[in-house]
Amino acid sequence: MDNVIRRRTPGARLARAALYAVLIVAALFYLLPLVIMLLTSIKPLDEIGAGTLLALPQHPTLAPWITAWGEACTGMRCEGVGGYFWNSFAIVIPAVAISTVVGALNGYALTKWRFRGSELVFALMLFGCFIPFQVVLLPMAQTLGWLGLSSSRAGLVLVHVVFGIAFTTLFFRNFYVAVPSELVSAAKLDGAGFFRIFWRILLPVSAPIIVVSVIWQFTQIWNDFLFGVAFSAHDTQPVTVALNNLVNTSTGVKEYNVNMAAAMIAALPTLVVYVLAGKYFVRGLTAGSVKG
């Protein structure tokens, strides 16, 4: 704790035990919403009304999940959130890919090919990170109209790319600042040009920051609601908007189990990305630091 080696007294052991107890309780507390969502989503509707929130299901069922995926009503239609789930992927994947690539090129140009005013460009880019979404809703709607991209997936991709570039540029710029510029000088003398140097020298060492950029962009865009609700038509809605519609559609009894299952479906991809890529991210960081 304080980097002093000392004999473990019973008091110290007790303090350590208390510390762990507090941490475990806190961890459980944070896990609670997820546990409740999962439990509720596999309970039949009558059990939800009868038992407490934390009661284990007597007759576990996957029916709410199936309903949520393919049958639940989101507004006028009753097709579940499945179609919107794929909508989200169709928006998120190109948006993440494009914003990451552009951010990487921006970061590379801003650090290794400094030009007059490059610091100002970077400052303005940084400013882009702080622009509230609401401010751009109307101008963006107008712009998408002019571009003929209103209510389309391509339009949403464009919006997310434009907003994401500020962040991805920041990530890559800060990463490439630490890459020695002599590498670029050496490659220039060896006869490589702008894109060749990027592709052959910088990109191969960028794995850690690519992972950071992908995780960030994926969760941001997947979880986006405001742009999704403002710039999509019925058949191009992302899953977050569909989930909202599903929960707000009132036809008779509230099907909490279906709502929870739909919420789980909507949250699953970001959870998976964190679990899979998060591990790789940490590995990438430590590998980089050892290489130094």
């Binding site: 020695p180 002599e182 050496a186 220039k188 003398l189 006869g191 052959r200 020298i201 191969p204």
Partner: peptide
């Protein structure tokens, strides 16, 4: 630089780390 027919040895060696 590429057109000058010169080669340079840098203080930090500047070896391409991925190669």
């Amino acid at each position: 630089p590429a057109e000058r027919d010169i080669a340079m040895v840098f203080q930090s060696y500047a070896l391409y780390p991925s190669m």
